[in-house]
Amino acid sequence: MKEYRHMQIRNILIFLLIGIAIALTIGVYMVQEDKDELQASIQCTGEIGLEVGNCAPDFMLTTIDGESLRLSESNGKPTFINFWATWCGYCRDEMPFIQKAYEQYKDQIHFYMVNATSTETSLADVKKYLDDHQYSFPVLLDPKKENQTVTFGQYEAIGLPMSFLIDREGRIVQKVGGALEEKKFIQMLKQVMK
């Protein structure tokens, strides 16, 4: 009788464990399917490169406020990327109208101002520069890694400033080496929002 009761309890436990395993498997599958669907909707398909029409190379950097940010997690919004440094005269010239555009279009376009952090005197100087000019656009820090800044090397941003405009699918639609011209810049932004 005891053996029969132990067998019943064992069988119930086995069925219970199998049920839990099936439920977990279905749950993981559904979460993964939702995640894959979201990623498919925001990731570019095609050749990754720096020419217009290519998928923009993905990157993950830290903001000046310490948050991690990944380009591919743009939620289907266009993205403006600008590589800059505080010592760059042309960068300083274009920043006031980039700030103005950020204030106007930040709900429709991601603005990522990527600082050449390893070329700066100190992070405190970068923060002071931004505070002094009341710039509120997101600033990403690009540290040095094995003789090369992470994203500057990836985007071949040898001269500063350098800017990229990326559409909702993650495709490069504009690439500008050197200083931006304000009117053309605003036209570029309006075009990518259509």
Rank of each mutant, 00 (worst) to 15 (best):
D34R: 15
I12F: 13
G89R: 10
E156K: 15
S72W: 03
I42V: 14
Q108T: 01
M113K: 04
F80C: 03
Q108Y: 04
D58G: 04
C55E: 06
N115S: 05
I109M: 09
Y155G: 03
A85D: 03
F164G: 03
E3K: 14
I109Q: 07
T117H: 09
Y129M: 09
E73V: 00
A85R: 06
G170C: 06
D93V: 04
Q187V: 06
I42G: 00
Q174F: 06
E94H: 03
L17S: 08
G27A: 11
S122I: 01
R10M: 13
R168C: 01
G53M: 09
G19E: 09
N147L: 08
V176P: 02
R171P: 00
G177Q: 15
H110L: 10
D125R: 11
I42P: 00
E51C: 00
I22T: 08
G153K: 06
Y129A: 02
I81M: 11
N115H: 09
A179P: 01
Y90T: 09
D93C: 00
K35N: 10
D132Q: 14
H6P: 00
M1Y: 08
K100R: 13
Q148A: 14
K194D: 13
R70I: 04
L69T: 03
L38S: 06
I172S: 05
E51N: 12
K175N: 11
T151L: 14
Q99W: 04
L189S: 06
E67N: 11
I22D: 08
L69E: 07
K127R: 14
I48Q: 09
E94W: 02
S122L: 05
I98D: 05
N147I: 02
M30V: 02
N75T: 01
L38F: 13
V52S: 01
T63N: 07
I186D: 12
K183D: 15
C44I: 04
S118E: 13
E73S: 07
L71A: 03
E3D: 12
Q39F: 07
C55H: 09
L16D: 05
G89H: 05
K184E: 15
D36I: 04
N11D: 10
M60F: 02
I20W: 11
E156R: 15
K127I: 05
M60T: 14
E73W: 04
E73H: 05
G53I: 10
G53R: 11
F137N: 07
M162T: 13
F164Q: 07
H133K: 15
Q43I: 01
T63P: 02
N54Y: 10
I109C: 03
V150I: 15
R10Q: 08
A179L: 10
L140S: 05
L24R: 01
Q148K: 14
N11R: 07
Q134V: 01
L16P: 00
K77W: 02
F137Q: 10
A124V: 05
H110A: 06
K144I: 06
Q39Y: 10
F111C: 08
K184C: 00
P96R: 11
I18N: 02
H133R: 15
E146Y: 06
A23I: 08
A56H: 04
K194W: 01
K35T: 13
E156L: 13
Q134G: 00
P96I: 05
I22H: 02
I22P: 00
